[in-house]
Design a protein around this nucleic acid. Structure first.
Lengths: 191, 191, 191, 191
DNA sequence: CATGAATGAGTCTTCATTCAT
DNA sequence: GATGAATGAAGACTCATTCAT
């Protein structure tokens, strides 16, 4: 629905400009060009609105990653690693201000469950991809997928949150690819 | 000072039990067995209190990691990887509820700068350690250290925030060690 | 607006009954029969509310004086003096408790600017009137107007603040008229 | 006592620098180089301290004026007017920032009584002076003295509070003298 | 007498939520 | 359905005053 989309957009704008604490329902409604009351016609409360916005974006990332995993089935692990990194980064860094703002929501009470749920999808897709590798043998694909994705996530988060210098971004993809290639390579099947 | 310690403890307790939003100055004071006014005798405002608590714990972790890096100078990279992982995990998982609670503070406005500042110390120590490896050549030790630590951080965070099943903890150290060993191993000097 | 009027009235009542320091937003809201939040729907903060109340009343006085000045153009200075005193006193003493309460606001940080701004209007109107006197020549009408009005203001304030015995009020107008008549008379043009 | 003097000085400094609201007992004590507790050894509460400071300065002004009145006994009214204005202005404008700050205290609950009490002294001295004039007959010297002083006070206050442009100060004494000369001159005894 | 940490009542202000229009 | 004024609970922070040392 157009209204819901307007709310999502408005929420993200207020979030990035004013921060989570100043992201009030009134401000979001105003930005979306509607009244506060209308917000409550679509979401039972503020948290639900924020959760929906977070979920939508997490799903987009997950979807992108899952699709990539799908396409990489049967390819060698080295290619898997580079494709996975590429897809994940492209999705997360498409709009850095948004990705960054969403971390704040995820840190809220209830955010963890949401992230966990969607993470599971990504892990499943990745594990499934890994299991299809012709040149490697993963005893526990789910575990390997989890470690891979969380490691990747940690690096991206550090970049977005500013924990590391921005110029680090340039070689991020290269290093991340190297990291996963090396890791997944450990499970390469002896020819 | 005893009062400051009581405030730290109380803050962490309220934080873990009520969450960041409900971690009010009044509640902290009450839990610490003092009045609100006393809190403001030691910290100019709520954010300063939270930042102090966060900083103290981050410094402890950083110190532990730095000390380990010191001790691993000159050792082979494989050992470095396993020692680094071991030290980092031991520090972060000592009290999981506290580590978890602190993520919320770090996500607050101003938290990023603090994390970035202390992260730099860890990166420096780690890079210095890497540069001393007899069996590897790192073109850019700082970059490698950054990637290593953020990847490790991402995995630990996922565990703490519950993004991954708790039983995953058992093999975490093993997998993380594998991850870093593989990554750092890429830079092993050809004999 | 009815709500704004209610706030003005309530503010003045609280001000006269409890004094400026005890004139809290909550008390004003309560007296106005509404909740605190509503006060902030009309004024950004307490100072703005107080300033608005002060301004409204100062403007009323200024308007009254200005209108009188308008009507006295071209009249002899003696008449100007008596009309000015009469109008000023009528406006200021209409509700003594209100006039008195407003002095407290004017003494607040920011109040001076407001008073100065509105004073300028009165001075301008008075100076213009003086310049039109057929029987006098004022080198600097603005200066004379300023001295006249501030002198008048000082006397009225002393009465309102209780610096002088209340029974003094009876002959106030008479003496004030005498004061200004004598002063302005100094500039009477020699026939 | 030295301590009391230090408190007076400190209070005035804090008052002029931070304003009445931010003139806290702790800040005053700190400025005076002592602890809060000591303040309460000399004054029962904050209001008493402020009142004492106000009173001291008002007394100084009153004393100056009274002394001048004493010296002007028997002189012609024109001279009385000029001497009175001169003395009053010299006292009030000696330190404008202090005079200005004290208005804030006077506007407080209880300040009026204090001002009224000390005003009475000045009025008495002035009335007595007027009664001794050889060239004038004042039916009610007290009334005339009151009007004269309040008018003078109003003009000075307007200047100090910034209600009128500062450059106005230059001709203030001249105009104020003219004002009183003209007023008192109305009672000149026909030769 | 001096000290200054502790107190806690009291302010201002914000904001999620409701509901009469 | 939309509106947005009204609500009032809750939070951060201040500061006059006390009292144990």
């Amino acid at each position: 629905m157009a209204t819901v989309d307007a709310l999502h957009t408005a929420t993200l704008q207020v979030l990035t400009q004013h921060g989570l604490v100043r992201c009030t329902t009134t401000r979001v409604a105003e930005r979306a060009g509607m009244s506060v009351g209308s917000v409550y016609q679509y979401y039972p409360n503020r948290d639900a609105l924020l959760a929906a916005v977070l979920e939508k974006h997490l799903l987009e990332v997950a979807e992108t990653v899952a699709r990539t995993c799908e396409q990489c089935r049967g390819k060698p692990v080295a290619e898997m690693a580079s494709e996975l990194v590429s897809a994940y980064l492209a999705a997360k860094l498409r709009d850095t201000s948004i990705s960054k703002a969403l971390y704040a929501i995820a840190a809220q009470r209830g955010g963890a469950e949401l992230v966990a749920r969607i993470n599971t999808r990504m892990v499943t897709a990745t594990a499934s991809m890994l299991a299809s590798a012709p040149d490697a043998d993963f005893e526990d694909p789910t575990l390997i997928a989890t470690v891979s994705l969380t490691a990747l996530g940690g690096t991206v988060r550090a970049l977005l949150e500013g924990y590391v210098p921005p110029l680090f971004e340039t070689c991020l993809e290269q290093q991340a690819t190297l990291l996963l290639t090396a890791y997944l390579g450990m499970y390469r099947r002896p020819a």
